[in-house]
Every structure is written in C-alpha cells, then in structure tokens.
Design a protein around this nucleic acid. Structure first.
Length: 565
RNA sequence: GCACUCUUAGCUUAGCUGGAUAGAGCAUCGGUUUGCGGUACCGAAGGUCACAGGUUCGAAUCCUGUAGAGUGUACCA
C-alpha cells in the first residue's frame, strides 16, 4: 500500500476544497510518537505565500480535511504543524488484506519501464576479488527491487573480455595444452605465469603480440583459444554467483567484445554530430567546462573504454529500449561516467527522457580503515572470502537444535553469505565500507543474524501453535498500532529505495520493523495462558505479516531465510 | 594546480524533497525472567552534527568560504 500517497491524497483534497492553490507539499512520517503517525508541515511554508498566519492556514486545511475513514484525528500543534493519526480500524483492515495477499498488499507499478542494471562486470583475465563484491550485490539488489515493483529489468554483466592481455593469455593457454584447463583454476597464478613467460622469453612475447592482432582480425584458431579461455574464466565467476546466490546467468552477459563492431560507428556518429576533434593524434570529444577530453580513439587507431561505454549506452537505449540505465560501479569512476553520459546525451545516442545514473559505491576497507587486502598485501579472492563466511557462520550458530552435518552446512551457507551481503547493503553505499567479520556475524544491532533470529523465532511460534491462522486483526494497544503502521509502510520504503537506488533504506526499515516486533512480542504474549483466542489470532496474524515482510525484504536483498537456526 | 566526494557520541553509523528535544547499534554502567527461542527486552550515560559565515519564521540538511581526509585528473578498464 502506498500509505503516504493515500494520506497525501486527503491533504490534496482538502487543499482543493479550501481553495488553496499551491504546489503540493507532502506529509512526512511523524518525528515523535506523540505527534501521531504522520505530520504535515506545509502550513508554515505557505504562510508567506498566502500572507496569512500559519496556524490559521493549518486550521483552514483542517476544516476541509475529510478523514475518509482513514484518519482518526488531526490536530494543529506548535507554529502550524498538522499531526495526523490513522484510524486503528482502518489500519487493522489494511493489514488484514496485506496478510492475505501474496504480495503483501504491495502493488505493481502502473507504468512499468524497461530498466537496465549494469553490475558485477568482472575481468576475464583475473579472478574475482573483493572489489567485485559490492557491485555484484548492490546491483543484484537493485535489479531484484525494480523487478519486484513491476519494471522489466534487463540485467547486464559487462564482462571484460577484450584487450591486449588476452594475446598473452591465449598464447600461454596454447602452450600449456591440456594442462591449461587445470591451471586455469587459479587465474591469478595463471596470469602470473603467463606474464613470467612473456617477460622472460622474447619468442613467446612476440607470439603473444601477434595473437592480439590475430584475435582482432578474426583468426579462427586464436578465436577458438580465446573463446575457450573466456568460457573457463566465466565458469569461475558463475561459481561465485552461485555461492553468492546472485541472479546472474549467461544470458545476462554482454561482454565488451559484443560492442566491437559498433565502435567505428560511434566515432563516425560523433564526427557527424560535429563533436570530434583531433588532439595529439587522438580523436577526442571536448566537453564544455571539462579540462580533460573524452578520448574515443587512440592515436594508434585503437578504441577505449569510453568508446565501448558509448556503444553500450546506444545499444541499451535504442535496441533494448531502456528508460533507466543504472551503472553499479565504484565511485572512483564517477568522473568517467559523468563525461560519458554527457557525450551520449549531447550526441543524441540516448534520448532525453532516458535516465542515466551512476550508482556509485565506496571502497571496501579493513578494520583499520585501509583498503582490504590479504596479510601479504595481495587482493583477497572473493571465493575464499565467501568460504570463510560459511565457516565463521557455522561457529556463530552453536544451536541447541540437533542438526545433521548436511543441515548445518546448509544453514551456515545461508546465514554466512547472508551476513556478508547484509552488512554491505546496510550502509549508505556511497561511503567507504568497513569490513568486519565480528560485527557482521553478531546477533546484535542491525545485522543479518538479528533478522534471521527474529524470523526463526516467529516461525517457532507458528510451529508451536500448530493450527491454521485465521482470524481478524484488531489493534489492541499503542505497540500494535506502531507495528501495524510500520508494516503498511513497506511499499513506501521500497519505492523510495528504488528511486534512490539505496538498499540501506530497506535494511533500515527491516531493522526498525523487527525491533518493533520484538518489543511488541515482549509485552504482548501470544501463546501464553490467559490470552483469549481472538486476541491470540490477531497477534498471530501480525506476527505472520511481520515474518512475511522480513522474508520479502531479505529476498529483495538476495538473502534467504531459515525456519530454524 | 583543477575537479569530485566525504567529515554526525570513544567506535560503526541513520537522518540530507529544510521543521517541534539529532535517531540507532557496539563498547561502559544498571535493570527485567519460574523466560510463548534471554543470541531477547527496558533504562542510564555519552553530541558545539569539522569550523566560520549566509539564506530562512526554522538548517545536520540549502549556499559561500576555511581546515582535514579520500578519489580522479589525455590515449588501461
């Protein structure tokens, strides 16, 4: 339910009825419990415009306000705040509906759009490392979220499969023969070995250079080697995606090489648009106000990533028909994207109404605030990190339940991977992220385990109850009121999170929701003796809607839940 | 040099379409239970929202400047 919008509609109607002409000012969540559920602060802003005192304006609005069964009361406070209380019966009925609905009462967009989300983008010449983690899970969350809200999401994994290093790599692959398959398991090592050969052996180096040219000119033998290399390397990535529980498949891969043939046209079109200028032998676009140009063709005739990105933008906007194109890439590339987006718009590669956004995120740091590295200063392989998460999760869930080794492994996997994802998604993506095992595997605070624990605890109530939950929700006290309103806010939160591409808004919401539930549950017993059946069922249903909301929220974050832990 | 980003409690942070006393968690101190999963809940203490101006009835939030940190800065991606 779009709760805020519904409340807003009431205010808008009141404006119309009172004959106030002003741009709509929206209600906000009440800042304090004693101020009700929502507050409208617009009267103060209107005071100057209407040349009236704000309390009087508030009174006028109030006089015209029709509650529509939704509001219980509205009061003026302070200099002209209007505090709004939702009607408990209306809340109860709305929650009832949500509880019985598969989508928890959350609607699908009326005007869905095609949205491209570009994320993960590993380099085929290297192993996936922690640097790819944030892009992969933030991007996946955004894609899940938009999809859930009804947009047609096109996931794009823009893998790096082109460049001079591949000449060296396939030359080495060829030299290794059948053995190559095995050694490709450790790409990092493979790369090092190939580089070693390249530096030590002139003949090999020449062959490597020759192979670069041959791939580019479409030599069959070299292309076969190259394809084999990409295939194996991509397989490693898929192993990571599988472990990470991320929705990226081979169909989502649209590699750099995919745009090769269109690069010439990009440059031609820029030339036609009169945007091209030669500088030191390179073809450049000089944007007004920018010191450094966007180079689209090197002096040696080669193309750059800006060219590929322009080709990709063209493809996504015109062939795929996307109206929103989101790049989930490290914040350090913000300058690059700002330029490329500008060029694409000015050259008409992308229509004006297409939203281009760089969903930037900060660097992953270790506990001491330095960039995340292994003890000897190397990059941490993502697959190792994920395996460690599962091992650590196992140690954290010393459960009273008697699990078989297989069950424990399964739960540890969900919990461990979930913890890694949640901790990352829970902070504002633009700030640097401090990676801390102890914090992420703690049961306290805004953590994945606190959510998992709450969910499992609710499931335990249901197991104990053992019957169908069919009753009527009745709002019994202040806490139930707060919990129910929080449950109804879910759609608002998801929409805002989608608009801002901000997963942490979802985690913040879930945390508030669970905290409220815990307080509610602490004070309002469900299965204890002395609770009448009617109240019991109402509370069970609130618990059920809470659990479903947790599950749905986590699902959007790409995290599964477990019934016991 | 120039550009962009950041600076909120000891630590990690939320809040940024301007609103009423800036929210949390960790750590610290104290409390709750014959406990529906206590890996929970309640409370205390802890803040010149980097600093200085400005706009406004009202600023953590918008603007300008200063300081500190980070990042980017012509043929890598």
């Amino acid at each position: 339910m779009k709760l805020k919008e519904e409340v807003n509609t009431l205010i808008k109607k009141a404006f119309a009825k009172a004959g106030i002409e002003a741009e709509p000012i929206t209600v906000t969540d009440a800042t304090k419990p004693e101020f009700g559920d929502f507050q409208f602060n617009g009267a103060m802003a209107l005071a100057k415009q209407l040349k009236q005192n704000p309390r009087q304006i508030a009174q006028t609005i109030l006089d015209s306000l029709e509650t529509g069964g939704m509001l219980q009361k509205a009061e003026i406070a302070g200099p002209g705040f209007i505090n709004l209380w939702l009607n408990p019966e209306w809340i109860a009925a709305s929650c009832q509906k949500a509880e019985q609905d598969e989508r928890l009462g959350i609607g699908k967009k009326e005007n869905p759009i095609k949205a491209v989300v570009d994320y993960s983008g590993p380099n085929m010449a290297k192993q996936m490392h922690v640097g790819h983690l944030r892009s992969t899970i933030i991007g996946d969350t955004l894609a899940n979220l938009l999809e859930f809200l009804g947009d047609e999401v096109i996931r794009q994994n823009h893998i790096g499969d082109w460049g001079t290093q591949f000449g060296m790599l396939i030359a080495y692959l060829e030299e290794m023969g059948e053995e190559g398959n095995g050694s490709l398991k450790d790409l990092e090592q493979f790369y090092k070995d190939a580089k070693g050969r390249f530096d030590a052996d002139e003949t090999f180096a020449n062959k490597a250079r020759e192979y670069v040219v041959k791939i580019q000119s479409g030599d069959a033998h070299c292309l076969t080697l190259w394809k084999k290399f990409i295939d194996i390397s991509l397989g490693h990535c898929e192993e990571v995606y599988e472990k990470l529980d991320v929705n990226l498949s081979r169909e989502d891969v649209r590699a750099e090489s995919f745009y090769n043939e269109t690069l010439v046209k990009v440059v031609e079109d820029l030339d036609k648009a009169g945007m091209l200028k030669e500088s030191d032998g390179a073809q450049c676009v000089f944007l007004e106000g920018d010191e450094v140009p966007v180079i689209v063709r090197k002096s040696d005739g080669g193309y750059l990533y800006a060219t590929t990105d322009l080709a990709a933008l063209y493809y996504r906007a015109n062939v795929l028909g996307a109206k929103r194109i989101s790049y989930v890439v490290d914040a350090r590339q913000s300058g690059h994207f700002k330029q490329v987006f500008r060029v694409a718009k000015e050259a008409g590669f992308v229509p004006e109404d297409v939203k281009l956004e760089h969903v930037a995120f900060g660097t992953m740091m270790d506990k001491s605030g330095k960039p995340f590295k292994t003890r000897d200063g190397g990059t941490v392989k993502l697959i190792d990190l994920l395996d460690e998460a599962v091992v650590r999760a196992k140690a954290a869930i010393t459960s009273k339940e008697n699990y078989s080794e297989a069950e424990l492994e399964k739960i540890a996997r969900i919990v461990g991977i979930g913890a890694v994802k949640y901790a990352d998604l829970a902070i504002n993506r633009e700030s640097n992220y401090i990676f801390d095992w102890d914090k992420m595997l703690s049961f306290e605070g805004n953590t994945s385990l606190y959510m998992q624990y709450a969910y499992a605890r609710i499931q335990s109530i249901f197991r104990k109850y053992g019957k169908e939950i069919e009753g009527e929700i009745v709002i019994g006290d202040e806490l139930e009121h707060k919990l129910a309103v929080m449950l109804l806010r879910f759609e608002d939160v998801l929409n805002k999170a989608a608009e801002d591409a901000a997963p942490n808004q979802i985690t913040t919401y879930l945390y508030e929701l669970v905290t409220l539930f815990m307080r509610f549950y602490e004070r309002n017993p469900i299965l204890k003796e002395g609770v009448d059946e009617r109240t019991r069922l109402s509370r069970l249903m609130l618990a059920d809607l809470t659990a479903k909301s947790i599950k749905q929220g986590l699902a959007i974050l790409g995290i599964q839940v477990v019934d016991r832990l």
